[in-house]
Design a protein around this nucleic acid. Structure first.
Length: 503
DNA sequence: TGGGTTTCT
DNA sequence: AGAAACC
């Protein structure tokens, strides 16, 4: 409990209440056991959902401008189409196609620039928050995918309405044409398919977004099965069909968790298919990748994935970057960095937390191995600088951060010699939840309007009043639990309040 | 080939 | 600080 001395009783009759002290904000997860970061030991029969929105960026743009729904639409970042709507796909456009190729295939293609992720990010968090209203175990994967562990919901519904295993599956069941009979044998997954359908309808109704869902017993399988029927459909994977879906993968690269590098290393060991990996001796694999990675890889090949759905919560870092053909002068670096930092500080201000670490990343041009030579330097943010960021004038923070950025830049680039950059990135991390800013004249409402993100509504989830032990007459603690988007799932704040008689 | 983000080493 | 993974 915070200090509540400071007992000056002089003007008791002049006010109705006053704030004696405030207790710093505590993330609700720390005080609410049901919001723990992981689901604990994984139950034997989990029900995991994986949601994957259809061409997410394109959907967001079509909501912003419904006229785009009927035309072939591509979302452009620099020289590539990062995603496109289904009208465009039917005309031969595909993801990550170059703008020239896409225009060649489809001259009528309408392009919308998608380099500014603001609207996508906002919609992305709305989705995650909607999912969290069903259950707190939601894990984000990029902007448009989410895992949800609905085991608890399923178990509860099963206990409440035991007759509910009468119904069949909603949507597709992998490798089954008629699912009627299987529902009895897989009550949890059957119920899961109904919950997935409900949630998808809710997403459509509340956010106007469509997407796919996969229902299975772990994250790996839920993600794999999610993509089997593609736009706006859902698929359940029964345990007896795990080998089928794993076996259907055309290469090891298709296994989530096996990226480009790992697939190359596996190939070097003579492994091409999932079956190859399944049969490869674990010891030999461990010599190449180390025991933990080897076991993980082997499990993935078998469809085994015990990893829990880990609630993502608020982001751990905020970054802003831009790529370009060429930046070769310090002045240009300064200007571009100022631009990036300005946006980032604004986003950080909106978040409300205080970053403790700043990082600058660059990409130097090189003819060979052009993609993926990034270098970075980071440094602590001096406390007085960090404090400026969430405050009203973020301009102050900028002028202090910019020299910091340039100092980091000079650690990587000798600006007396010629240089050629193709990317700049600024990043805030080590984000610290600040204390409740209860200004002296503050009322409860001024806290909620002042101390949180402007333009973002804050929900008070609950509040509770607690009397102090004897000796602190007329003094109480008021606890308020609230939500600060995005994904600050709940914050406990507390005031010590002293009441006085209104004579 | 973009603009993010997280986790592991 | 970088590598690698995911989108």
């Amino acid at each position: 409990m915070a200090n509540s001395e400071d007992e000056k009783e002089e003007d008791d009759t002049e006010w109705k209440y006053s704030f004696v002290d405030s207790i710093p904000l505590i993330p609700a997860a720390a005080s609410d056991p049901s919001l723990n970061r992981t689901s604990g030991p994984t139950p034997a029969h989990r029900v995991i959902l994986h949601f994957d929105l259809d061409c997410f960026y394109a959907q967001v743009e079509m909501i912003r401008n419904p006229a785009l729904r009927e035309v072939p639409l591509g979302i452009q970042q620099k020289y590539i189409i990062v995603t496109c709507n289904y009208v465009a796909r039917d005309l031969g456009v595909s993801k990550l196609m170059s703008v020239t190729d896409a225009k060649e295939k489809c001259p009528q293609l309408v392009l919308v620039k998608g380099e500014d992720l603001t609207h996508y990010r906002e919609m992305s968090y709305k989705l995650t928050e909607l999912l969290m209203s069903y259950c707190p175990l939601v894990e984000r994967l990029g902007f448009d995918e989410n895992f949800v562990d609905i085991t608890k919901i399923v178990e509860r519904r099963l206990a409440e309405t035991p007759e509910s295993n009468n119904f069949s599956f909603k949507g597709h069941v992998y490798n089954h044409t008629s699912a009627e009979l299987e529902a009895q044998d897989h009550p949890r997954l059957a119920l899961g398919s109904h919950i997935a359908a409900e949630i998808r309808e809710d997403i459509k109704g509340k956010l106007g977004l469509t997407g796919c869902a996969g229902i299975a017993t772990n994250k790996l399988l839920a993600k794999l099965v999610c993509g089997t029927f593609k736009p706006n459909q859902q698929t359940t994977l029964l345990t007896e069909n795990i080998d089928d879906i794993i076996g259907s993968l055309s290469s090891l690269r298709k296994v989530p968790g096996v990226g480009y590098q790992t697939s190359k290393r596996l190939q070097a060991l003579g492994l091409a298919s999932v079956k190859d990996l399944q049969l490869f001796p674990l010891n030999d694999l461990a010599r190449e990748f180390g025991a933990p990675s080897a076991q993980r890889l082997k499990n993935l090949a078998l469809g085994v994935d015990e990893s829990p759905v880990t609630p993502t919560g608020a982001p751990q870092s905020l970054s802003d970057e831009d790529s370009f053909k060429k930046i070769s002068s310090t002045k240009e670096v300064l200007e571009k960095t100022r631009e990036l930092l300005s946006n980032l500080v604004e986003r950080m201000r909106n978040d409300g937390r205080q970053p403790q670490t700043f990082r600058l990343t660059i990409r130097k041009y090189s003819a060979t191995n052009k993609w993926f030579n990034r270098e970075s330097r980071q440094c602590p943010i001096p406390n007085h600088v960090g404090q400026k960021i969430p405050s009203e004038s973020s301009e102050d923070a900028l002028v202090l951060l910019l020299p910091l950025a340039m100092k980091l830049f000079h650690k990587m680039v000798d600006s007396s010699a010629a240089f050629h950059l193709t990317l700049l990135n600024v990043c805030f991390s080590n984000l610290q939840t600040k204390g409740a800013a209860v200004s002296g004249k503050g009322s409860i409402t001024s806290f909620f309007t002042q101390s949180t993100s402007p333009g973002k509504t804050q929900q008070i989830c609950s509040s509770q009043i607690q009397a102090l032990p004897t000796g602190f007459q007329h003094t109480f603690i008021l606890y308020v639990v609230c939500r600060i988007p995005p994904l600050r799932t709940g914050v406990v704040t507390a005031w010590i309040i002293r009441l006085a008689h209104t004579a």
